[in-house]
Design a protein around this nucleic acid. Structure first.
Length: 585
RNA sequence: GGGCCGGUAGCUCAGUUAGGGAGAGCGUCCGGCUUUUAACCGGACGGUCGGGGGUUCGAAUCCCUCCCGGCCCGCCA
């Protein structure tokens, strides 16, 4: 009915500047009705003039302006086709922030995540993830079994790892555990299950009852849609593949007639078996362009975030089909820009991916959530080599929340977003957590002894004297992350204290200097004194200071460089240091 | 070819909603911490805000245009 221009349905609502501000013509009917009642009653945390420092508030405003009925439904979803990487996390984390804001405003909110698992497996993935989320190659599983199942729904293909009921269930379980690790409670919904229980029956009936309408609308977006097009893909009862050739529709019986024909995928052909049969509305699926709007209808979706790949394809056609065929209003959309990993596009086939377990090996969950709290529309790069920069930014963001940074813009953003980032909306922290700078944590990661780590952190002033035990433990947890980072990247912090004496030899004068230093340490001195004595000893023996330090690094790290040596040695067990300096153990 | 999104310092990013000082952290350089050895402190250097044009007293911000990158207009999420 309401024939609004596509401009008004732009999913780029965080980019539109002053939308509706220019044209007097269309501003009246869209904004006028919704605004009057409830705009003034929005969040108390907002400034009165409607400015928002946090994008999730902008989205929440838009959702509220449509007068949704509780519970508000926020959806995300992916096809469980293979390795879920950090890019897919957008689908849950973006919704997490919007859900949090809406709950804070007093709404009941459900966050639903669909596994679009009735889609067919179109080609063999090059990489898979095992039940622990670790990436493995196709050679580690029965690739032949997968190859024989091309064209079948993911839920009809056995789990390559033999643990769950299907390929889809395997990857859906990984997605759920990813969300849980990030502290995001989501309701998982299986598309296959929704079809099986009849949830899509009404939508399928509506679509197949209005073939002319579907063809006319969708034909404006897809050239392949012609007078013969039928928007339903039955699953062949003979061979189990998803087919595309429907020859007749029987609305009374709620069935379709089909012929199992070939499926073209990327130049390859998945052969149909030629079987001719009958399928019910539950024994097939809608094509994506219609299935997406049907999900909005079935799940009553109020908001959905999606990648920019959908923005100019299935979103505009989905909006149109929702209104003209299904008779519903589409949800509030939000497009997120893709991020790059180390400057390159995420690509599972090229191996340029990082999974949630992998990122959580080097980052605390709050830091990952912080990354996804940043503006969704900005092009950004996630660089593992310099992940310390991201952590530094998080620490600064956290300090800003506690009023410790002279940066009004950052402080406004932090005051609003921080409680959601740390998952403490209802009882925000009142004391700033103790944090070790990430690179300092990497230095501590060079040794295993927890007591050593804590001593050194205290000596360097990173842990206040009155910090409670739990805060200290939480701070030291970062050391394991930073150590994993150093090992993964092999960077300048990737040193390990050598438990065994490295196989080394020194010139006589260097050896004599080491013996003198050993005597000094044995006499009992602190790290600062040892550091100073190293210079004295080198001078006494007329050797280059650089050579002497290098000898020390060779003995303790079997390397030519390392951390500030004297103070480091001062924290280690004295007997160990003395013996090592004497090259005895 | 058409449409959409993105482009701010060497790096990672704020600032674009609401036009007014071009900013932060890191890196680099210099200096300090008795003594060059990656942790700590201070300072400096560093940008045609992708280019050009326009509106304005004033533009990173609004308009036009061009360049570069990504995405969509086939399939698929």
């Amino acid at each position: 009915m309401t024939d609004e221009s596509t401009h008004d349905d732009s999913p780029h609502i965080l980019s539109d500047r002053g939308s509706g501000g220019g044209d007097a013509g269309d501003a009246s009917d869209r904004d006028g009705a919704g605004d009057a009642g409830d705009v003034g009653a929005t969040s108390d945390a907002d400034e009165a003039d409607g400015f928002h420092a946090f994008w999730a508030d902008v989205i929440a405003d838009e959702v509220e302006s449509r007068d949704p009925t509780d519970p508000i439904v926020i959806k995300g979803g992916v096809s469980p086709s293979g390795v879920a990487h950090l890019g897919n996390v957008n689908e849950v984390m973006r919704g997490y922030f919007v859900a949090g804001v809406l709950r804070e405003r007093g709404h009941e909110v459900r966050q639903v995540f669909t596994s679009d698992d009735k889609d067919p497996l179109r080609k063999l993935p090059r990489k898979l993830a095992n039940p622990d989320g670790e990436i493995v190659g196709l050679g580690d599983v029965d690739a032949g079994a997968l190859g024989r199942n091309l064209g079948k729904p993911y839920t009809a293909i056995p789990d390559p790892f033999g643990e769950r009921e299907s390929y889809a269930a395997h990857f859906a379980a990984l997605l759920r555990s990813d969300a849980e690790r990030l502290g995001v409670p989501v309701e998982m919904a299986s598309n296959t299950a929704l079809y099986a229980e009849g949830a899509f029956d009404d939508a399928v009936r509506t679509v197949l009852s209005d073939l002319d309408g579907v063809r006319e609308t969708l034909g404006q977006y897809q050239d392949k849609v012609d007078g013969e097009y039928v928007p339903f893909n039955p699953v062949c009862s003979a061979c189990g593949t998803v087919t595309e050739t429907v020859t007749d529709v029987d609305l009374d019986a709620e069935t379709v007639e089909y012929r199992c024909t070939d499926l073209e995928v990327d130049g390859d052909t998945i052969e149909g078996c030629g079987h001719e049969g009958t399928a019910t509305f539950r024994e097939g699926k809608l094509p994506w362009r219609l299935e997406w709007p049907a999900q909005w209808d079935v799940l009553d979706v109020d908001f959905e975030a999606f990648g920019k790949d959908h923005a100019e394809g299935s979103w505009p056609s989905g909006v149109d089909l929702a209104r003209t065929v299904l008779g519903i209003e589409p949800p509030v959309p939000m497009v997120y820009e893709w991020f790059t990993l180390g400057g390159e596009a995420l690509s599972s086939s090229a191996g340029n991916v990082i999974t949630v377990p992998e990122i959580l090996a080097v980052l605390e969950p709050a830091v990952v959530r912080y990354f996804f709290a940043l503006h969704p529309k900005r092009a950004r790069d996630l660089d593992i080599e310099r992940i310390d920069q991201l952590v530094d930014r998080f620490d600064r963001f956290e300090r800003a929340y506690f009023g410790g940074v002279d940066d009004p813009a950052l402080t406004r953003f932090a005051e609003r977003a921080y409680p959601f980032v740390v998952g403490r909306v209802d009882d925000p922290p009142t004391e700033k957590p103790v944090r070790l700078p990430y690179t300092f944590a990497a230095v501590l990661g060079m040794v295993d002894d927890p007591a050593f780590r804590e001593r050194l952190a205290r000596d360097e002033g990173h842990i206040p004297d009155d910090a409670p035990k739990s805060a200290v433990e939480a701070a030291l947890a970062r050391v394991e992350k930073a150590r994993n980072w150093a090992e993964r990247t092999g960077n300048e912090y990737d040193y390990r204290l050598q438990a065994e004496l490295p196989d080394v030899e020194f010139a006589d004068d260097v050896a004599a200097a080491l013996d003198d230093l050993a005597d000094f340490v044995a006499a009992g001195h602190d790290g600062e004194a040892i550091q100073g004595e190293m210079y004295e000893t080198a001078r006494d023996h007329e050797i280059e200071i650089a050579d002497f330090f290098q000898a020390g690094y060779r003995l303790f790290f079997d390397d030519t460089q390392g951390p500030r040596l004297g103070e480091f040695l001062g924290e280690l067990e004295r007997e160990y240091v003395v013996n090592r300096l004497r090259r005895e153990a």
